[in-house]
Amino acid sequence: MSIAKLCTWFGIPRRRVYYKPVKAVPKVDPRFADPIKKMIEEEPSFGYRTVAWLLGFNKNTVQRIFQIKGWQVRKRAVGMRPRIQAVPSVAAAPNERWSTDLARIWTGKDGWASLALVVDCHTLRVFTRSISDTSGADIQRWMRPVPVSPSAPGTGSAIAMTSSQRPSSRSIR
């Protein structure tokens, strides 16, 4: 039976039967591939956009080479990643563990001021405070008077903190 007759029975054109698609194997220019390969060997986490920008190549060309050579960097999974659990910083005795904090305070017409605190993690008292003002304004009027703590080393001041203000870092000593 002829192919022409079979094609008429099945309702397909003869051209579809005889046509053999010939797709050329993609060619990669070594003047692009060599510097790209060298860069991703040095920095394997770089994606095609970073590599293209650093080498000054077209990003579409670099992406195509990544796909042909199988160098594509996999996208990170979306979602929550494991994090370190924040554990309250609890010290067994005074002067065992300390926590620091730095804050910027808007003081109105005087501008910004920086406040640095050192807190004992056992007694939850602020022993040292330092406030600085770059504009030279009288910043002491913004500070409340702080009584001296008898348990503080040397001559420090102390303010009691509430449990919600307790420092939560384990590594501060």
Rank of each mutant, 00 (worst) to 15 (best):
P82V: 02
P167E: 08
G11T: 04
A92L: 00
F32C: 03
V126E: 00
E41Q: 14
T100N: 04
R170P: 06
T162R: 13
F127V: 05
D110L: 03
P26Y: 05
D29P: 02
Q165S: 07
S157A: 09
P13W: 04
L54W: 03
P21L: 08
Y19W: 11
C7L: 01
R125Q: 14
S114C: 09
F127R: 10
S157I: 13
E42D: 11
A113E: 00
L54Q: 08
I12T: 11
M161V: 08
V90S: 06
P94Q: 03
H122K: 14
I172N: 15
K23A: 07
S171V: 02
R81M: 03
K59T: 09
G156W: 01
E41I: 04
K27S: 05
D138Y: 01
F46Q: 12
Q67N: 13
P88K: 11
W142N: 05
P145D: 13
R125Y: 03
G111Q: 07
K109Y: 11
D138H: 12
V28P: 03
A137S: 15
K20G: 08
Q72A: 15
T61M: 13
T162F: 03
V126F: 10
A77G: 11
K59M: 01
T107F: 11
A116E: 06
A137H: 13
G136L: 09
P167N: 03
A103D: 13
V87N: 08
G136N: 01
P13K: 03
P26N: 00
V148M: 00
C121I: 07
P94D: 04
I12G: 00
S168F: 10
G111R: 08
E41Y: 00
K20A: 09
N58Q: 06
R16S: 14
K75C: 03
R64T: 04
F57M: 10
R129V: 01
P94T: 06
R14Q: 15
R76N: 12
C121L: 04
S157L: 12
N60Q: 12
P150Q: 07
E42C: 06
E42H: 08
A113G: 04
A103K: 14
K37F: 01
S168H: 12
G108R: 01
N60W: 01
S168M: 12
F57C: 07
A86P: 08
I159M: 12
V146E: 13
C121Y: 05
L102I: 09
G79R: 08
G79V: 02
Q63M: 13
G56C: 04
R166D: 00
P88R: 14
G136D: 05
W98Y: 09
T107G: 13
Q72S: 15
P82C: 07
S149F: 10
E42T: 02
P26M: 04
C121S: 05
P82G: 05
V148A: 15
V73W: 08
V78S: 15
Q67F: 01
R15D: 14
G47R: 10
V28G: 03
K109H: 11
P145K: 13
Q165W: 01
S163K: 10
D101Y: 13
T107N: 12
W98A: 06
V62G: 02
W71C: 02
R129M: 14
I36H: 02
D120T: 05
E41A: 15
P44G: 04
P145M: 01
R125G: 09
R31F: 06
T128A: 14
V119S: 07
